[in-house]
């Protein structure tokens, strides 16, 4: 009884705090000086119509590097904890997949892969970018798993793609220091025509590398989860 009373009291207190915050809240229409600079000069400096991309990749490129590193750590820790011990158990065969899902996966996996590549190559023109494209590529792997639950991805190919794209990402960043203004500067390549596919300097290359890295890491996570499922069937 007393415990419930305290819980209700705490919830009421939190509600009071949020209500006071809500009354204080007002969307500000004025930009901060930094945001004003980005909004006015971003398109001319970077050459990308999608301003979010130019901020994520060049102005705040180090953050993207950190995010990719965190994702890599997550993938490594998951594969460490979900390590499968091969005991030589005989696995029960799964239920036979119906023809419809087999056909759909054959039809859709190339389409999903192409959509993922489209999303991260066009990251500077349309909404989207490396992370979104990588997640879509990992989803193609899920589609393969749905058609055949015992499908296995080659771990060596994943590891090779992941490490090569990560290395190349850092290498492009260091090239930015050597040839242009700073780390991950995109002006190591010509800016090109505004709004064309091959424009905005190195942004398409950087985003392709990020997309490949994120896609291989997420596929690796999913593959580890699938390995654990097979374990005790």
């Amino acid at each position: 009884m007393i415990r419930n009373f305290f819980i209700i009291l705490i919830i009421a207190g939190l509600a009071g705090v949020f209500v006071s915050l809500f009354w204080e809240f007002g969307a500000s229409d004025t930009l901060t000086p930094l945001a004003t600079h980005y909004a006015n000069n971003g398109a001319a400096e970077v050459g990308a119509p999608n301003l979010v991309t130019s901020i994520v990749v060049t102005y705040r490129g180090l953050d993207t590097l950190g995010e990719v590193t965190i994702l890599f750590l997550v993938a490594a820790i998951i594969s460490f904890f979900l390590k499968v011990e091969k005991k030589g158990q005989k696995m029960a065969p799964p239920r036979v997949s119906s023809e419809i899902i087999l056909t759909a996966s054959k039809l859709l996996v190339p389409v999903v892969l192409v959509l993922g590549i489209y999303v991260f190559v066009n990251g500077h023109l349309t909404p989207g970018g490396g992370f979104q494209g990588g997640a879509i590529i990992a989803t193609a792997f899920v589609l393969l798993l749905m058609a055949n639950p015992r499908f296995e991805l080659n771990h060596r190919i994943i590891a090779a793609v992941e490490s090569v794209s990560g290395m190349a990402f850092v290498l492009v960043g260091v090239l930015g220091i050597l040839l242009a203004g700073g780390f991950l500067d995109n002006k190591i390549l010509p800016l090109g025509h505004f709004g064309k596919l091959f424009s905005a300097g190195a942004i398409p290359i950087i985003y392709s590398l990020v997309g490949l890295k994120v896609g291989s890491e997420l596929s690796n996570i999913l593959s580890n989860f699938q390995d654990v499922q097979k374990d005790e069937l």
Binding site: V111, L115, V119, P127, G128, I136, T139
Partner: peptide, 9 residues
């Protein structure tokens, strides 16, 4: 584009 991704995924 967002609807495109939604429809496929």
């Amino acid at each position: 584009d967002v609807a495109l991704i939604y429809g496929l995924l």
